[in-house]
């Protein structure tokens, strides 16, 4: 690679000629993502108030072990006594990993949490930089595997949303049914607009016209991908709100209104 002729000066941390409020966007991301991580960790460790009637909190779905409704029965006997138990611990790593390795979130949290850079044309705190070129961030390339898990979760949450319309064997609509329905729609918009999915369904091909079906799927994914950031934030907010709604209903704080 050619070298540049003159060694350029490095600017100091936070140094910039920008006169706009450049710090607002990273601050909002820091507060938004930080609040979500704190709440999701707290809610995931509670191990209680995650079911109400036909509703199951998305933080606890699928419930592999735990209550009588769990796929494989109650808490497993091999679970270490010293380790805190919650059904969410077994599954939250998968959607969490999908978000952590997401191309949109990567760019956002590198800025907001690591100041790398704090914002465009703003000086950084560190001189040393490896990016995603080597360990540890080279592991971000695992994203497509979390995508595969994410698609499974969409199917699972769609099943939960369907179950949310059945009250003691009778079809009905409660506010919670709509909350879970909106949740799976927003998460689908986010998951099916994934950059890795866009690549896998068609972006990998140079002559996409020879595969008309893949071209159509590629166009659909590209359409969702164009608003990936919006889907990411809306789905993040709503998945937390879904848990809040079910938790407060289960605690008796909120009343779940039946529409019919």
């Amino acid at each position: 690679m050619p070298e540049i002729d003159v060694p350029l000066e490095r600017v100091g941390f936070g140094s910039t000629s920008r006169s706009d409020f450049w710090w607002v966007a990273p601050l909002v991301v820091f507060l938004g993502l930080g609040a979500f991580v704190v709440y999701a960790t707290w809610a995931g460790l509670q191990g209680d108030y995650y079911r109400f009637g036909p509703y199951l909190s998305p933080f606890y779905s699928p419930e592999l072990f735990g209550s009588a409704h769990a796929w494989f029965g109650p808490k497993p006997g091999w679970w270490p006594a010293w380790l805190i138990w919650s059904p969410a611990i077994l599954i939250l790593w998968a959607p969490g990993g999908f978000r952590v390795t997401c191309y949109y979130y990567r760019g956002a949290y590198y800025k907001a949490f690591w100041a790398d850079p704090p914002s465009c044309t703003v000086g950084e705190p560190r001189k040393y930089y490896r990016g995603e070129h080597s360990f540890p961030l080279i592991w971000q390339n695992i994203h497509r595997y979390f995508l595969y898990l994410g698609i499974f979760f969409i199917g699972d949450l769609a099943y939960d949303a369907w179950n949310g319309f059945w009250f003691n064997g009778h079809f009905g609509v409660g506010v919670g049914s709509l909350v879970l329905l909106v949740n799976v729609i927003l998460l689908s918009g986010y998951t099916f607009g994934c950059h890795s999915l866009r690549h896998l369904v068609g972006g990998v091909l140079d002559r996409l016209s020879r595969s008309p079906a893949r071209k159509k799927v590629y166009d659909c994914v590209s359409c969702l991908n164009a608003r990936h950031m919006t889907w990411a934030w809306c789905s993040l907010f709503w998945v937390a709100f879904s848990d809040v709604y079910i938790r407060l209903c289960a605690m008796g704080v909120w009343h779940d209104w039946r529409i019919f």
């Binding site: 990567r106 590198y110 790398d116 930089y129 990016g131 995603e132 070129h133 080279i138």
Partner: peptide, 9 residues
Amino acid sequence: IGFCNITKC
């Protein structure tokens, strides 16, 4: 290309 950390600037 691995040095790009997708800040979209």
